[in-house]
Design a protein around this nucleic acid. Structure first.
Lengths: 335, 335
DNA sequence: TTGAAAGCGCTAACAC
DNA sequence: GTGTTAGCGCTTTCAA
């Protein structure tokens, strides 16, 4: 069933059918009804490809993320997809993994598929070496690119970020204030947001003359999901003689590993060791005691990201970078 | 830049350009190289919409799920997206929520967008009332529909399921064997797979004359993520005088709530209470002690689902339903 | 308010 | 091995 069939059965031209299909005003109520009746009768729906060819858009947005099964990224994708759909856009999902090479080819693929815009979910798309970020600016030459929790200053790329620096700064300040002096920062990512978090922690420590290079910052390299391995890492640290009575983790998974470590060492939480996570995910309640964590207002970020994108697509001038603040949600792992 | 531009610059016809683009054999090496050079020089990529219009496909598969941020569904989507992409297909993601109405409209929307196939991820797409499943059969009249962890007998719909019944039966049998007599089944879904699981539990209990109607089966109605509320539900049960020394949960989240409950009651795990979860997710390691759980081989299921879909799309005869068995992974919450 | 007709950029059947 | 041409099903001028 094509627009020709409908036009024939309704006794009008295809132009008229097209007009009612697209809600053009210049159609008499009478012919409009006539056409609509035929359309409904035959359950006709326009061919999306032909439409795409004519309009040069199929109203789809490409969503890229490293790993859609990551708790945090999954949540972001969920919010984004919902809000896009509510605005008439489809989402093409693209899980790229963490390799730059794959990110580049995925990005190019999406552009080839003629998406209307691209959303990069997660800070891992931004690299320390500026040259490595060229692929994003290149893509932005074709379609608007939105960054969630990352920022890049380039034409046609828009960033929405949580103020990780301040959140972490305040978490650390708070823990210091509660009496802990020798806490460590436990992290596994040097991404854009990863660096901000670490810097926030470090600043708070330095301000209080508590920062010890090579000790205060503890990097874990390994699977993002392997909690036992993370806990083991902490144990080795402690075995090496590095002592600490507080752990601020770069995400809730790492924090859970910290809790696991503390339990294995029979340390009382929070009396003997304080722990703070990041993301305020469901994991906070998977923990005993419940995990204190930083809420970075993911839904708000996503909401804002989508409105910005829609604005850009409508040709409006939109803010290049928006920053939201996070909030420390206190639960059982801190005093 | 179009195929016409390229053909002109290369001094050949558009048909020849199209041929090298599509790897047709009937092109001489010389002209092929000539065309390829021009293509590379101008970084030309064919217009996907025009291609779609001609071929009537854009090589995309619709993925529907109720909630892509659900731990289990997210993992499934991840596997599926990866495997589709590896085979040259894009994925349009569609989070429908749990309302039938929305599922129907999403499904129709995907068909309108002319996807090549549709994958329904999760058992919640199948309803008890057969009439409610008509929307799936209707969709299958247009494109192949794949069900993950659900089954429906209709033309052009294919099911890949884990043998939830047997897995649950064996988990229950195992717990009975370990000496627990009065365990309860803690669940929150009456979906296709939810019913299978429950039936497996019930069968094992009945076989051992341990099943007590109105007691052995405990339904929790509430947020799928609210662990404290789930734990509270168990506490109320216990307060009501219903005693149990074992909990088999329909998923790991519920099982974690069971652990939380046990800790609040100062019950020793597994000595005084045994707990088994389902899905063998990362949550098993978020738990202290680590959670015994049933692994339903999600990646295998997804792998098989994709190969079946690809087979169907290639016009091959494929199995309508495939069943894989799960496996009980014993950890610290069982004896 | 309506219709005729020219694209949109590609594929593929057919002819040479 | 290569070119010509007729679609694919829509949108959108331009005339009427």
């Amino acid at each position: 069933m094509t627009i020709y069939d409908i036009s024939e059965k309704a006794g009008v031209s295809i132009a008229t059918v097209s007009r009612v299909l697209n809600g053009s005003s210049n159609v008499s109520e009478k012919t409009k009804k006539k056409v609509l009746d035929v359309i409904n009768k035959y359950e006709y729906t326009p061919n999306a490809f032909a439409r795409g060819l004519g309009l040069n858009t199929m109203k789809t947005i490409g969503i890229m993320c490293a790993d859609s099964s990551d708790l945090y990224l999954a949540k972001a994708i969920y919010y984004i997809e919902q809000k896009l759909r509510a605005n008439g856009y489809d989402s093409i999902l693209c899980c790229t993994g963490y390799q730059l090479e794959n990110k580049i080819s995925s990005l190019n693929l999406l552009i080839t598929k003629k998406v209307d815009g691209i959303i990069l979910v997660g800070s891992n798309f931004i690299y320390e070496n500026d040259a490595d970020n060229k692929y994003i600016a290149d893509a932005a030459a074709q379609v608007p690119v939105m960054l969630l929790n990352a920022a890049l200053d380039a034409p046609n790329v828009y960033s929405v970020v949580s103020d990780d620096y301040t959140s972490m700064y305040e978490a650390a300040a708070q823990m210091i204030h509660s009496g802990v002096r020798d806490m460590i920062y436990f992290y596994n990512s040097n991404s854009y947001s990863g660096k901000k978090k670490r810097a926030g922690f470090q600043a708070a420590m330095e301000e209080n003359k508590l920062f010890v290079p090579g000790r205060s910052l503890q990097y874990y390299q390994g699977s993002h999901e392997d909690i036992p391995a993370m806990a083991e890492h902490l144990k080795e640290l402690s075995d090496k003689g590095i002592s600490f009575h507080g752990i601020i983790a770069a995400d809730d998974t790492l924090a859970l590993a910290a809790v696991k470590y503390a339990k294995a060492k029979h340390l009382k939480i929070p009396e003997e060791i304080s722990i703070i996570g990041y993301n305020n995910s469901m994991l906070t309640e998977c923990c005993d005691p419940p995990l204190t964590s930083i809420d970075n207002k993911l839904e708000t970020l996503c909401q804002h990201l989508i409105s910005t994108l829609l604005g850009v697509l409508s040709g409006n001038e939109m803010p290049k970078k928006t920053i939201f603040s996070g909030e420390l949600v206190k639960r059982g792992t801190t005093r």
